[in-house]
């Protein structure tokens, strides 16, 4: 399982490195979203500063959704997924590899995005280790359930994935937003219960994903 996961993650990251979809398409897209938010709030820095955590996670969700859809979509090309299933490749390994690759891509994207937000919204980044750790856990939570649902909606209408995914991951996004809110304001004690909730949900989604991904491939 671990060897399959490593091979799958390497393959997905190599594909991303060669195609550079994240840098050429997803990153510009998330900055467009950030600018649209600034328009929506009349470019008032004091308001933007207050809503930074929410904006960050809504924008990250858009990026995650695109990265997840692409990660699953590439397996549909030339029926690659059918080939993997026919060869009896461990589905749990495939799942973990895909999750790892998307999380690595998203962490890179979020690092750039957080610097962009800090500059554009005039929000200093405090408690960076907490922010980074919560981003990692939230990305795992969203990606695990996202890979499952992207498998479920593969080949179907493109609007189905966000419709199914956003309500499911809303507890993860809410918890991550709260952790970022308290992290940015330096109130570490208040971030603890939300961090626990974040870990809990991400863990539930990870276990669920590992359990059902084999059935997703069958479907």
């Amino acid at each position: 399982m671990v060897r399959t996961a490593i091979a799958m993650a390497k393959k997905d990251l190599r594909l991303e490195w060669r195609a550079r979809v994240l840098i050429n398409q997803v990153l510009p897209f998330v900055f467009v979203v950030i600018i649209l938010f600034a328009f929506g709030f009349d470019a008032k820095v004091e308001i933007l500063g207050q809503v930074t955590p929410g904006l960050f996670w809504v924008t990250s969700f858009f990026g995650l959704e695109l990265a997840i859809a692409r990660s699953v979509g590439i397996e549909g090309e030339n029926q690659a997924q059918v080939g993997l299933v026919m060869m009896g490749v461990n589905p749990r390994g495939m799942f973990l590899g895909k999750v790892f690759a998307v999380v690595v891509e998203m962490l890179a994207l979020e690092a750039v995005l957080s610097v962009g937000i800090a500059v554009l919204f005039n929000t200093p980044l405090h408690e960076v280790p907490l922010l980074a750790l919560s981003a990692l856990i939230a990305d795992i939570g969203v990606t695990t359930v996202g890979i499952v649902l992207a498998g479920v909606t593969e080949g179907l209408s493109g609007s189905l994935l966000p419709l199914l995914l956003f309500p499911v991951v809303s507890p993860v996004l809410l918890s991550a937003t709260k952790v970022w809110q308290y992290g940015l304001s330096g109130s570490l004690a208040k971030a603890v219960p939300w961090s626990e909730l974040l870990v809990g949900f991400s863990l539930i989604y990870l276990v669920l994903g590992i359990l059902v991904y084999g059935v997703v491939l069958e479907g």
């Binding site: 359930v145 499952v148 649902l149 479920v152 909606t153 199914l164 309500p167 499911v168 507890p171 539930i204 989604y205 669920l208 059902v212 059935v215 997703v216 069958e218 479907g219």
Partner: peptide, 18 residues
């Protein structure tokens, strides 16, 4: 029919967490 059954059953399992 089978594809719809399997896919929607997985979606139902994920949705029930809420």
């Amino acid at each position: 029919e089978t594809k719809r059954g399997v896919r929607s059953a997985i979606a139902a399992l994920v949705a029930f967490i809420d």
